[in-house]
């Protein structure tokens, strides 16, 4: 199969032309998105171009240390983004969430590269950077859902938590129902999504590989493997980020610290 032809800049501009529709809707119906839409589309373009330049060099040099370093930088951004989108304080949460990503996606990335794909060099850029990016990007949303759900629920249903403590629960026991519900909320969308994959949606990685000239059969196998890897990575990342943050989110009396939330 043939690799996808390049898109000229002029034709790429045509893609931006598509934005007229959402912009018009947003403008006439006063959705209040116009400014934000420009900023977001602008950021997306800029970031991807930068990423493109960066990838050219990462692929050219293909230095294992550099590749791993770049994945860690991506984890840093993923963590930062998760924090910005939740109402939680950076000071308490940044490090534990970062650690959770590091362990969760790091382990799964190694597993994917070594056990599933088994290239000669498992630290090659196309594996570490590309697959690492997919794992991180896709577990980001779930982590935000999970961790926000957990702390918001403890705050909102504070009486339930205190009631359990007063019934003799130790802290882990009183937190278990909240942990359970947060994990459910974080995992549920992906589980639902998995069930429709291939029917309702053709996932991005597969589409990309096929456009790039890969055999559909290979593309599908990669897709199946990456979906399972993403799901496991996000489960570990969510569970660990709650576990790691929980250790310092409460005072010695078992009370949730008020300083956890940004005002």
């Amino acid at each position: 199969m043939e690799a996808a032809p390049d898109i000229s800049i002029m034709r790429l501009l045509a893609a931006f032309g598509l934005l007229i529709v959402p912009l018009a809707l947003s403008f006439f119906l006063k959705l209040g998105f116009v400014r934000q839409l420009f900023i977001s589309a602008g950021r997306m373009t800029g970031q991807l171009f930068l990423m493109g330049i960066l990838l050219v060099y990462l692929f050219r040099w293909d230095n294992p240390w550099l590749n791993v370093a770049w994945v860690i930088v991506m984890m840093f951004f993923a963590c930062f983004s998760a924090m910005v989108n939740s109402k939680l304080s950076f000071k308490h949460f940044f490090l534990p969430v970062f650690l959770a990503y590091f362990v969760g996606t790091g382990l799964i990335l190694l597993f994917f590269n070594k056990v599933i794909v088994n290239y000669e060099n498992i630290f090659t850029a196309r594996l570490v950077v590309v697959v690492g990016g997919m794992l991180l990007g896709n577990s980001l949303n779930s982590t935000i859902i999970g961790i926000s759900h957990y702390y918001e629920a403890i705050r909102k249903e504070n009486k339930r938590y205190l009631y359990l403590l007063s019934l003799g629960a130790n802290q882990q026991e009183a937190l278990l129902p909240f942990f359970r519900e947060a994990l459910r909320a974080a995992m549920r969308p992906f589980i639902a999504n998995m069930a429709t994959m291939g029917i309702v949606s053709l996932p991005g990685m597969m589409t990309g590989q096929m456009l790039g000239g890969a055999d559909p059969e290979t593309a599908i196998k990669y897709q199946i493997a990456i979906v399972l890897a993403i799901f496991t990575a996000l489960t570990i990342s969510v569970a660990l980020s709650i576990y790691f943050t929980s250790r310092q989110a409460f005072d010695e009396y078992g009370i949730l610290k008020g300083s956890l939330f940004r005002r």
Binding site: E157, N158, K159, R160, Y163, L165, S166, L167, G168, N170
Partner: peptide, 19 residues
């Protein structure tokens, strides 16, 4: 001693949230 003493007390409030 708070964790031990809490277990001597029972607390029921208005508008219970149990789950």
């Amino acid at each position: 001693n708070i964790w031990r003493l809490r277990r001597k007390m029972a607390y029921v409030s208005q508008e219970m949230q149990i789950g």
